[in-house]
Amino acid sequence: MKTLTRPLCLISLLLNAALFGFFYAWVCSTMWGLDAADPRVAIAAMQAMNASVRNAIFAPAFFGSPVVLLITTLVLAATAQRGAMAWFAAATLLCALLGVILTMAVNVPMNEALAQIVVPDDIDTARAIWFDYSPDWQFWNQIRTIATGAAVLCIGLGITRLDPA
C-alpha cells in the first residue's frame, strides 16, 4: 500500500491544482471582463459558460479532487505517515467543503437562476440583473478560490512530510 502514496499524492496535487486554477481564472480575468462588457453580453456569455462547464474534461478535477484527496489521506493513515496525513486531511476538508460543496450550494443555484433569465433587450434591465448576480457570485467564487489554493499548499506541505522512499 505504501507504493500507492506518491502516485496518489501527485494525482491529488494535479486535480486540486486544476480546480484551483479554474476558480482563480474566474477571479482574475473572466468576471472582470464580463463586468466591463455590455451586461446583455455578460449575461449571455455567463449562461453559455455555465452550460458548457458540465463536461468530461472538468468533471475529474471538480468531482475527483475530494475523492482522491480522501483516498490519499486514508492511505497515508494506513501507512502511518501521520505528518503527511494531517496536511492531506486539511486539504480534503478545504476542497470538499469550501470547494465542491460551496459550489453546489451557492454558485450552481445562482448559475441555474441566471440560466432561466431571458436576456433583456433593455440595457438598464440587463445591467440590474447582471449587477444583482455578479458581486455575490464573485464573493463566493473568491472563497472557493482561496480554499482550493490553501488546499494546494496543504498538499505541498503534505508531500514534504512523506517518508523517504
Rank of each mutant, 00 (worst) to 15 (best):
P120V: 10
I57V: 13
L98G: 05
A84I: 06
M110K: 14
A77L: 15
L74A: 02
L8E: 01
V67W: 01
T3M: 11
F62K: 09
Y133P: 06
R54T: 09
D132W: 08
T145W: 12
S52P: 02
R82V: 09
Q142L: 13
A45L: 12
L93S: 03
C9G: 12
A51W: 01
L34P: 09
L102N: 10
D124H: 06
F62P: 02
I117R: 14
T92W: 03
C154Q: 06
V75L: 00
G64H: 05
N141C: 07
A113I: 12
G21K: 05
R127K: 14
I123E: 12
A51R: 09
L153P: 06
W140E: 10
R54F: 13
P66C: 05
S52L: 08
G99L: 04
A165M: 08
I143D: 09
R6I: 03
L13W: 10
E112W: 06
L4V: 00
F63R: 08
M1N: 12
I123K: 11
N111D: 04
R40F: 05
A61E: 12
M85I: 07
T125M: 03
F139E: 02
W140M: 04
A150M: 14
R82F: 06
A18N: 10
G99N: 03
M46D: 11
A91I: 08
S134G: 07
T92F: 09
R82C: 04
A113P: 12
A42F: 09
G64D: 02
V119Q: 08
I123W: 01
D163E: 15
T160R: 15
W26C: 11
R40K: 06
V152K: 10
V27R: 01
A165C: 07
T145Y: 10
L15F: 07
G156K: 09
F22G: 04
A91F: 03
S65I: 03
F20M: 07
A150Y: 11
F131W: 13
T3Q: 13
T72R: 08
A61Y: 14
S65H: 10
C95N: 11
A84V: 14
T79F: 01
Y24H: 14
L94V: 02
T145F: 12
A59F: 10
T73H: 13
E112H: 11
A115W: 07
A61R: 05
T103D: 08
V100N: 00
A86C: 09
L76F: 02
L97D: 04
S52A: 15
